[in-house]
């Protein structure tokens, strides 16, 4: 029995307690939220069809392996599995692309393998750096972002190494 397998039951229990004892109307809230989740997953399909077609081709052609081999001298030195090379490249560029590649890693190596866990933590602790930077800067009306992008990329690279390090320590 480990701590992490309790996370979801605890959250569900808190939810259940609230639902049972709350005097507010919660039924509609749950349904509307769940519908948002439904739409979210469904609206992924069109982009994901294209992306996973591309990703499948990338693996089948041997390009994925080649890229891994190409980057392995650097990645191995910092403790990052070279099988993650495609994910690392796409992660800062496209959220749905990263989802497609994460699925690919899970299918090839299993979600509970060291590689699968590293991919999970990398995906969970970073966002689409280039997209987020562009979105936030344009949201504020800023055209000169100064040191934002170099900093964000530095943090992302450090995060990649840190993710694999933490997975190695926690097991």
């Amino acid at each position: 029995m480990n701590f992490s397998s309790l996370i979801f039951p605890v959250i569900l229990s808190a939810f259940a307690l609230y639902v049972v004892f709350s005097k507010k109307e919660v039924q509609n809230g749950f349904i509307s939220g769940a519908k948002e989740g439904l739409n979210g997953a469904f609206s992924l399909i069109p982009t994901l069809v294209l992306l996973l077609t591309a990703v499948s081709m990338f693996s089948a052609s041997g390009a994925s392996e080649l890229l891994g081999k190409l980057l392995s001298p650097i990645l191995n030195k910092v403790g990052v599995p070279s099988e993650l090379a495609p994910l690392l490249i796409v992660r800062p560029l496209s959220g749905s692309g990263a989802t497609a590649l994460l699925t690919d890693v899970f299918e090839k190596h299993g979600p509970d393998s060291f590689i699968g866990k590293c991919a999970s933590v990398i995906s969970g602790s970073s966002d689409t750096v280039f997209y987020v930077t562009a979105l936030y800067m344009s949201g504020a009306g800023a055209t000169k972002s100064r040191y934002t992008l170099p900093c964000a990329i530095a943090v992302m690279l450090f995060g990649t190494v840190l993710s694999c390090l933490i997975v190695g320590i926690l097991g």
Partner: peptide, 11 residues
């Protein structure tokens, strides 16, 4: 996704 988004909406 459905379950989590539903729970979070209630929250």
């Amino acid at each position: 996704m459905c379950l989590w988004c539903g729970i979070m909406k209630v929250a």
